[in-house]
Computed example of a mutant assay.
Amino acid sequence: MIEIGARLSPGGTHSTTFDRGETLLARVGDVVVKAHPTGTDPAALHRRLATTERLGDILLPYLPIDGAPILQREGRLITAWPAGTPVDPDEPALAPWEQAAELLAALHRSPVPADLPRPGDTARVGRALDALPDSPATPVIRAAASTLPDWARGGPITAAGPRRALVHGDWHLGQLITFPELGWRLIDIDDLGVGDPLWDLARPAALFAAGIHDPADWQRFLHRYASLNPVINPDDPWAELELPARALLVQYAATAVRHAHRELRELDEVEVAFVEACQRVFDGGRDRSDVKSA
């Protein structure tokens, strides 16, 4: 991967390698090289990459490698991308909530491609539960998961929902980067697909419910999004968002426990907040007021 980056960014120095479990990233100069998860469907990835070319004002377009969008190495699919500046998690007051809402609304209003698969949103919930290790928090998370319908835990979806749009599939503030000449763009298209746009809103909703996002920031984001794509009432979003937000709380908690278990450490403060939110979900059953007040 470093060798690929060096070819695309001559003279660039290898600065960082990120191991994100299923995904490996290496930055060389102004290029990021990405090894996609084992088992990634090459045809689906090709279609997702083509969508970044069509929507380059919303999605960050890829960089060709030797004239091709994808390179295959040791059973992994490799892509390359321009390196930009991500949202700084240590400066929450500077987070681009309005710009994020504008990009997401623009994505959801884009023409729906006929050749894209379903997004990976509910499948991620199922994978997180499948990988959940035994721990003191595990019964709480599984209890919260039991309040979800099977399809929201990665099970088969037997019918299309009432809303159908081009969606990101794994949207959060970490999926934005900025460039001086371009402004903000959405990145990470592994789960891009055709589905319910409310599931893209569910991640910030879940983080708000767990006490991670500031209520004022959540309202800024929600009202700006709804002003551009009125699929939700920003003054009473939970009638629509409660179920996907509940599912994402379960995913966040399960992923947090898995990471802590793998790293042989206790849960940190944010991870504990996810587990506590799952406890409130279970205590509240299917009552949407639980997530609303969490």
Rank of each mutant, 00 (worst) to 15 (best):
L45D: 02
L129C: 03
P82K: 13
R109Y: 00
A131I: 01
A44K: 04
P113R: 05
A101G: 06
T79S: 14
G126W: 01
R124A: 14
I58Y: 01
F18Q: 13
P119S: 15
G56L: 04
T52P: 04
E102K: 12
A105S: 14
P117E: 06
G75I: 08
A35M: 09
G39Y: 08
T38K: 15
I78L: 12
L60G: 02
G39N: 09
Q72L: 09
P89Y: 04
P69T: 00
T38H: 14
D121L: 11
D30K: 13
A50H: 06
D57W: 02
A44Q: 14
G56N: 15
E22H: 12
D57N: 13
R48K: 13
A114Q: 13
G75F: 05
A35K: 05
R127V: 03
L25Q: 11
G39T: 08
D88Q: 11
A43L: 10
L104G: 10
E91T: 09
R48M: 10
I65S: 05
H36S: 11
I58Q: 04
D88K: 09
H108T: 06
R76F: 09
L107C: 11
A101I: 10
L129E: 01
I65K: 02
D121C: 09
G126P: 11
R127A: 12
G75H: 07
T79W: 00
D121V: 09
P96F: 10
P111W: 04
P113T: 05
G21C: 07
R20Q: 11
R118G: 11
A93L: 05
A114R: 15
W97H: 15
R20K: 12
W97K: 01
T40C: 03
D66N: 15
V112L: 03
L63F: 01
Q99K: 10
T52D: 10
H108F: 03
A105P: 04
D88G: 10
T79Y: 00
A26K: 00
A80G: 08
V31K: 09
T52M: 10
A105Q: 04
L25W: 09
P69E: 00
W97Q: 03
Q99R: 15
R76N: 06
R124S: 13
D41T: 07
L55V: 08
T17E: 14
A26H: 15
A68E: 14
L94C: 01
T40I: 10
L94G: 01
G120L: 03
L60T: 02
D90L: 08
L129F: 04
G126R: 03
Y62M: 00
I65G: 03
L63M: 04
T23C: 13
L107Q: 12
A80K: 09
E91K: 14
E53V: 14
V125Y: 11
W81L: 09
T79E: 02
R127Q: 12
P117A: 06
I58R: 06
E22M: 10
V33K: 08
D121T: 15
Y62W: 05
D19H: 15
V33A: 12
T85A: 09
D41Y: 03
P117W: 07
S110R: 12
P82L: 11
